[in-house]
């Protein structure tokens, strides 16, 4: 186990020794600071409370982090093929599945780290500018099952749900990276998944077919359970548990493809 951690250490080194990682880090810090400062300058500090702005900024930064994590997932495996270093990596006394797992873990750790930074920055900067509001109005929608509850519970639940969707999107990108060795495809399709989710679920909900409920896209919009109390498909009522189960199935499927293909394929050219 200590030995396996060394593989993760290696992957971490390859992530954090690259300047681009710190450019990404800069974005995650700067974007919320800029938004808060702009709002404070233009509308004054009474217009919004710290929680509302934190929610807004977090939802933006989460999309950024998803994109960054997908870029890392794409680099992590497809990059090794492009650089040719995969040949040096796979000729060590480690099974291919261990090596792939260490890469997957390092990408998830990257995503967790950036989420933690996002939470810390959005909380701190907004408290610093707008003051701390213990019982904020306008943060939790009336329709939310958490309405009237603590802002901490609400923010915690949003981060959890956003993180779950993010894991699925990153796993999707990782699959393209590991199984198809294409970082472009991995990044492109994952961003498509990230951005077009709500559009496609809107379209899908227009038809009455029952299989719509099993399509991946709508279930990535987990926030709808928290904000409106209902599922992401207006005409097809689903529960949070159902959405999580669907996501879990896709999650397993994506990983199955990644591992099977990566562990079996010949490394040539």
């Amino acid at each position: 186990m200590a030995d396996f951690w060394k593989l993760v250490q290696n992957e971490n080194m390859k992530i954090y020794r690259r300047p681009r990682t710190w450019i990404m880090f800069g974005f995650v810090v700067l974007v919320p600071v800029l938004i808060s400062v702009l709002v404070a300058v233009m509308d004054g500090t009474d217009s919004m409370n710290n929680w509302e702005l934190m929610r807004l900024e977090s939802s933006i930064v989460f999309q950024l982090i998803t994109v960054f994590a997908v870029v890392k997932a794409a680099d992590s495996v497809a990059g090794e093929f492009t650089w040719g270093t995969i040949k040096l990596l796979l000729i060590r006394p480690w099974s291919r599945s261990s090596i792939l797992l260490s890469k997957y873990i390092s990408v998830l750790l990257f995503s967790l780290l950036f989420i933690a930074v996002c939470f810390a920055v959005t909380f701190t900067v907004n408290v610093a500018i707008f003051g701390y509001d213990a019982s904020p109005k306008g943060l939790i929608p009336e329709t939310s099952p958490l309405a009237g509850g603590s802002p901490w519970t609400y923010m915690g639940a949003s981060y959890l749900l956003l993180f779950v969707s993010q894991i699925v999107i990153v796993t999707f990108g990782f699959m393209f990276s590991a199984a198809f060795r294409s970082s472009g495809l991995a990044i492109g399709l994952s961003i498509f998944l990230l951005l077009s989710g709500s559009l496609i679920s809107g379209l899908l909900s227009l038809t009455g077919k029952a299989w719509i409920k099993f399509v991946l896209f709508p279930h990535l919009q987990l926030m709808s359970y928290l904000d409106s109390g209902t599922g992401p498909l207006p005409n097809h009522p689903t529960t949070l548990g159902f959405s999580l189960a669907v996501l879990a199935v896709y999650f397993v499927l994506f990983n199955l493809v990644s591992w099977t293909v990566f562990c079996k394929r010949d490394v040539a050219g």
């Binding site: 080194m13 390859k14 020794r17 040949k87 000729i91 060590r92 006394p93």
Partner: peptide
Amino acid sequence: ISRVGAIVENPEMYKFL
């Protein structure tokens, strides 16, 4: 493989390290 050291084709290393 634990007994083997190898360079397969060009010695590609991590250029950013």
